[in-house]
Structure formats: structure tokens, C-alpha cells
């Protein structure tokens, strides 16, 4: 066939080779472009700063993703807590207070779920776990009412903890 229809055969060969090489070239160049651009952008920072920012971004992104995926069930909240606890040892110091706030919000939500199912002891235990985290963040009021407020707003958005009227 190749000998009988050389033009058609060469045409298909050309198309096949062009597409294959285009794919290989595109993949290799996009990987190289990606690495070069990252290197160029991070070159504006010194090595330590670059590493710190990278780990900070990774920790915040991981905690935010875990937070978004969490449902208002005991199992889901416990899974989120376990994810946050795993993240904590590797997180940079700047990310620790944010992780603590998320963990406190999870404990407060769990306390509310236990309360709803009349498991008072577990609810109290969860609240007692949330309090030191919030006190560590400098919260002056860690009463049950504040913890319930945190729990209520946990699934709307952590940002809704911000009161809607008037600055301090």
C-alpha cells in the first residue's frame, strides 16, 4: 500500500508524526515553562523566605480544602480534626493560629452535635478541648454561648464569625 499510494501514505505519516511530536513538544515545553516561571517568581525572595511562603501556602490550602469538604456530622468533623492535627506539626508558625481556630471551631461544632443527641459528657469534653485553643488565641470570652456562636457559624463560613455591625 505504501508503495502503491506514496502520496497518501506520506500524508498520513506526516499528520501522525506532526501530532505526536506536537504533543511531546507541548508537554515537555509546558513542564519546563512551569518550572522556569516558578523559579523566576520565587527568585525575588531569598531561599528561606521562599520556602516559608511555599509551606505556608500549602498548609493554608490543605486546611481550607479539608474545611470545605467537612459536613456537619460527627465523623466528618472528626476527620477534619484529624487532618488538621496531621497538618499542624509540619505547618510554619504563621499558620498555627489559623489551624487552632479551625480546630476550635470543629470542637465547638462537635460539642453542639453531642448536645443535640443528649450526650452531655462528650459535649462538655469537646467544649473543654475548644477552650484552651481559643484562650491561646487570646480570646477573652470562651463561654458556652461564644462556643455555640462559633459552632452555629462554622458551616456558614468561618468568616461569618465577624460581627456584621460596627468596628471594635
Amino acid at each position: 500500500m505504501f508503495r502503491r499510494f506514496p502520496i497518501i501514505a506520506n500524508f498520513f505519516l506526516a499528520v501522525g508524526l506532526t501530532l505526536t511530536c506536537w504533543y511531546v513538544g507541548n508537554f515537555a515545553a509546558s513542564m519546563a515553562g512551569y518550572v522556569c516561571e516558578r523559579h523566576r517568581v520565587f527568585a525575588s525572595l531569598d531561599r528561606e523566605q521562599g520556602r516559608d511562603i511555599r509551606t505556608l501556602n500549602e498548609s493554608l490550602l490543605a486546611s481550607a480544602l479539608s474545611h470545605i469538604m467537612t459536613k456537619n456530622t460527627k465523623e466528618s468533623l472528626q476527620l477534619d480534626l484529624s487532618n488538621l492535627q496531621k497538618l499542624r506539626p509540619e505547618a510554619p508558625p504563621d499558620a498555627l493560629p489559623l489551624l487552632d481556630l479551625r480546630m476550635a471551631a470543629d470542637h465547638a461544632s462537635l460539642a453542639q452535635l453531642y448536645q443535640n443527641t443528649n450526650e452531655a459528657t462528650s459535649a462538655t469534653a469537646q467544649r473543654e478541648m475548644a477552650r484552651p485553643l481559643l484562650r491561646g488565641l487570646g480570646w477573652t470570652n470562651t463561654s458556652d454561648a461564644v462556643l455555640d456562636e462559633v459552632a452555629d457559624k462554622r458551616f456558614r463560613s468561618p468568616t461569618s464569625l465577624i460581627p456584621s455591625e460596627g468596628a471594635k
Binding site: 504533543y23 511531546v24 507541548n26 508537554f27 515545553a29 515553562g33
Partner: peptide, 12 residues
Amino acid sequence: GLIVGAASGASS
């Protein structure tokens, strides 16, 4: 193929 692929890939 390689030239066109590399040119478009690098920018993307």
C-alpha cells in the same frame, strides 16, 4: 510538530 508544540507549550 516539535517546534509548534514547544512554542505553544512553553507559554501555557
